[in-house]
Amino acid sequence: MNFAESFRQNFIEEDRWRYLTDGLKTTLIITFFAVIIGMVLGFLVAIIRSTYLRTKRLLIPDILCRIYLTVIRGTPVVVQLLIIYFVIFASVPISKTFVAIIAFGINSGAYVAEIVRGGIMAVDVGQLEAGRSLGLNYRQTMVSIIMPQALKTVLPALANEAIVLLKETSVAGYIAIADITKGGDIIRSQTFSAFMPLIAVALIYLIMVVLLTRLVNLLERRLASNDKR
């Protein structure tokens, strides 16, 4: 079978390209919402952890956060996904995409938390003292002084985490979600050719990652120019 024929069989016949476009849509939806959940959760955990480290307050929440970080970072995301699907939401009628969003969001949150905590702790403790010495309370100091500085340093790392998450969602197929990887698998199972569907899936991921990386670099450069002022 020549290239054109193989291409036609894998993508054109029976509209098989739709497995890829529909899969891409699912992958993007899962990634997008998981990134949002991950960021919210990550910032929350990071703030609790750094508050405990800096002020020794919030001990109980800090312990909970540490358990969360240990469990999530100590187990593979596929296992977490299966646990959330088959154990936690065992008999709950719930959309699988939602399950995947929750699973990847919770997973990403742990990594975001450590990135953001690193950023917060990297802000000189003198900044906190300066804010407090002016009569600002801890929260006001965090919001107006510490977080803006921390955010600037961690933004590139956060963007990279989002890129990693995009690729990690490729295991969503384990709970029979037709994401882009599964889309390729479905074509493969129908045409029995490995080359076309796998290369197509790889290319789509690659293009998305390259585009996102470009964006991140642009962002980084803008932030760097901000520093020179």
Binding site: V87, I88, F89, A90, S91, V92
Partner: peptide, 13 residues
């Protein structure tokens, strides 16, 4: 709560 719901086997539809 979700874990408990599942473990006490809220029956499937």
């Amino acid at each position: 709560l979700a874990a408990m719901l599942s473990s006490c086997g809220a029956s499937a539809k």
